[in-house]
Amino acid sequence: MMENKVVVDRMRCCYCGGCVGVCPKDALLLEEIALSVDSAKCVKCGACVKFCPVEALSFQK
């Protein structure tokens, strides 16, 4: 899992910001309808991926 990164599926994301609130490293940013992951800050803990109510986040190579 280590070399993977968190990827957002734009077609699934509802832009609710819920994942942002569960990120311990402040690596997620929700602009109005754009969610981005700062891979420099992300520690790949998986909290956001687990949390997302609509499976819009995943780890990918």
């Binding site: 609130g21 909290a47 949390f51």
Partner: peptide
């Protein structure tokens, strides 16, 4: 600024939630 709070964090306060104290809502 709600659950996706950034502002307090940018001032050094920890406002993140843990999965054991946070509901996933749909």
């Amino acid at each position: 600024d709600g659950v996706d709070s950034k502002i307090a964090r940018s001032a050094g306060l920890d406002t993140s939630n843990s999965l054991s104290d946070y509901h996933s809502g749909f």
